[in-house]
Amino acid sequence: MNFDWTYFWESLLLPSPRFLSGLALTVIISVVSMALALVLGLLVALMGRSRFLPLRLLSAFYVWIIRGTPLLVQLVIIYTGLAAAGLFRFEDVDLVGALIRGAVQAAIVGLMLNESAYISEIVRSGLESVDRGQNEAALSLGMTPTASMRKIIVPQAIRIMVPPLGNSFNGLMKSTSILSVIGVAEMFQVGSTMSSATFKVFEVYLVVAIYYLALTTVWTFIQTGIENALNTRAGLPRAESVWKRLFGLRSRRQRAVTAPAPVLQTTDAA
């Protein structure tokens, strides 16, 4: 195999400004999309818990449509399909001196809509995991349903929702690699352009994979810190260590605690 180690190490340790720009765009799109998806997902989850049937049906229909269709198809419909049908076209926007291209806007909207459907289910299950008696007790003390949700239910549910929400963000960052289909110059598309220009296909995509791995690893550290902070506030044990999450490594003491107890077998006397 003719692997160009010099080009590989230069691309990995001294990435070009264009590659760094694609890396930054990947992170920005991921963070903005996730923030918006959290807001929309919470709204959809609350609609699903509403006493009004039309809101519950609308929430269920939204989740059904979004979760039942591929993200790639959704992106193409949002960016290309709407423009072809004459319904809406994403135009470049100048926001505080920064030019936000239409493809980037469509990417954020597509990722937001897709992720919000999954987040709504995470939020719904998290809220339902809190004992309903606590809400009834808060209402009996004179709290409004909104105050009970904000002060009693949500603080307890957040600790339960953080791990799956963190995993969702991890997946969202990796999903940005398909944004190249609508012309977003994120990290994967920049890598594709580099491989076409240099014919260093394996070297370039290996570098891209390592940078994606670095992003998800950094987020694992952040997520673990958030979980530990919430557990400390609730007086609970710390979350699993980062090393255990990344590699499944556990100490002998942990293995001893989690190992199943031996089963004693007895035989009847003859």
Score class of each variant (00 low, 15 high):
10 E>N: 14
11 S>A: 15
13 L>A: 04
18 R>S: 14
19 F>T: 02
22 G>M: 02
28 I>Q: 15
34 M>P: 04
35 A>G: 12
35 A>H: 13
37 A>L: 03
38 L>P: 00
38 L>I: 14
42 L>E: 07
45 A>Q: 02
48 G>P: 01
50 S>D: 05
52 F>L: 13
53 L>Y: 10
55 L>W: 14
60 A>P: 10
62 Y>T: 05
65 I>M: 11
66 I>N: 00
68 G>Q: 09
82 L>M: 09
83 A>N: 06
84 A>W: 11
89 R>Y: 14
115 E>T: 15
116 S>Q: 07
120 S>I: 07
120 S>Y: 04
122 I>A: 00
124 R>Q: 09
126 G>I: 04
127 L>Q: 02
135 N>A: 12
136 E>H: 12
137 A>H: 10
139 L>Q: 07
151 K>F: 09
151 K>I: 07
154 V>G: 01
155 P>T: 07
162 V>D: 03
167 N>E: 11
173 M>Y: 05
175 S>Q: 13
179 L>F: 01
182 I>D: 01
182 I>V: 08
184 V>S: 03
186 E>N: 05
188 F>S: 02
198 T>G: 03
199 F>P: 08
200 K>W: 08
202 F>T: 15
216 T>L: 11
221 F>T: 02
222 I>L: 15
225 G>R: 11
226 I>N: 05
228 N>S: 05
229 A>I: 05
242 V>W: 00
251 S>K: 14
254 Q>W: 15
255 R>V: 09
260 P>V: 09
263 V>E: 13
